[in-house]
């Protein structure tokens, strides 16, 4: 009997490994120095301030952007993977996607199954399963332009789940060759609280089956609750990586985000909880201003 710890022990070859990554956009060096590894069963959160290079690094890891350095997926250079094979092992969710053509909800998810040889009945069953998983089973006959931003994001996520058949039990999950990888760019950005958590729970369920995921995310508390490992980008450098409690400290975060940040234990979970130390001060400042301006003026100026 192999224990959980042995199973995901870091002595094995990582699912995704990258070293010395440097990425230029025009003359601008967006990522200056990044190196790290994502192991089987790990959910990695990529955090950092706006413009730190999170999305850029994520797209480089997806093999979509030319970057200097090494990026290996399952021990093989990402660029040397045939796209059709890669599509069965790795899914990517982009942050901004325009859809000028109004496909129906199930059509979009079915496209995720493009590389999989199966009958239409099998495909339809998968589409149904993953639509239900993101709570869109009731929107079956809608087209994508009839969805809200959050619904669209969940729909695209369902496509990624269907592409990797994410919740199919991964029977040979002790061999790293069967590990699948999901790269998600701000998957929770447009979602309400309930759906933020249900999406990340789905990703967590995916990684717990011996798969891996990297998520670029702004919400530090979601990162703290769900990630096994945090990678923190600052000015294009992967400055810190490690467990949530080792990276999400008041010192590191205050230094990174250039604003006072405090950390306390999460009330109902074994994780750090991050909050802004500015909030109290801002409130006081606001009260002083309102007194000076008179309540009415202040309220109209806020609107």
């Amino acid at each position: 009997m192999v224990s959980q710890i042995d199973l995901y022990s870091h002595t094995q070859r990582p699912v995704l490994a990258f070293q010395n990554i440097q990425i230029f956009r025009g003359k601008n060096q967006v990522v200056r120095q990044a190196g790290g590894a994502v192991h089987q069963g790990e959910l990695v959160a990529l955090i950092g301030e706006n413009g730190a290079g999170k999305s850029t690094l994520l797209h480089a890891l997806a093999g979509q952007m030319s970057a200097s350095g090494n990026i290996e997926f399952l021990g093989q250079d990402i660029a040397s993977w045939p796209v059709d094979v890669l599509a069965t092992k790795r899914a990517v969710l982009n942050q901004h996607t325009s859809l000028p053509f109004a496909f129906t909800v199930p059509e979009l998810v079915a496209m995720g199954r493009y590389q999989i040889a199966e009958t239409n009945q099998q495909r339809d069953a998968k589409v149904e399963q993953y639509l239900a998983c993101v709570g869109l089973a009731g929107h079956m006959s809608r087209t994508v332009n009839q969805l809200s931003g959050g619904e669209l994001q969940r729909l695209q996520f369902a496509r990624c789940l269907a592409q990797l058949d994410a919740f199919e039990p991964n029977h040979q999950h002790r061999e790293d060759q069967s590990a699948k990888l999901m790269l998600l760019d701000e998957p929770t950005a447009a979602l309400d609280l309930r759906h933020q958590h249900s999406l990340l729970q789905a990703v967590k369920a995916f990684t717990e089956q011996g798969n891996s995921a990297v998520i670029a995310i702004h919400d530090l508390n979601l990162a703290a609750l769900y990630a096994d490992k945090i990678m923190l980008l600052k000015d294009g450098v992967l400055a810190h990586q490690g467990s949530p409690s080792s990276v999400l400290t008041a010192d590191i975060l205050t230094n990174t985000y250039q604003t006072p940040i405090n950390v306390m234990p999460y009330p109902n979970a074994d994780a750090p909880m991050v909050y802004s130390a500015v909030a109290q001060g801002a409130n006081q400042l606001w009260q002083i201003q309102s007194k000076n301006l008179g309540e009415q003026d202040a309220q109209t100026s806020i609107v």
């Binding site: 979509q64 069965t88 982009n94 325009s98 859809l99 000028p100 979009l108 493009y114 590389q115 592409q163």
Partner: peptide, 20 residues
């Protein structure tokens, strides 16, 4: 046609879904 269909999602999406 089935590949062109997926190209409608966007070029990078199509690539991620396994289309050259």
């Amino acid at each position: 046609q089935s590949q062109i269909n997926i190209l409608l999602l966007g070029e990078s999406e199509a690539k991620y879904l396994g289309i050259d």
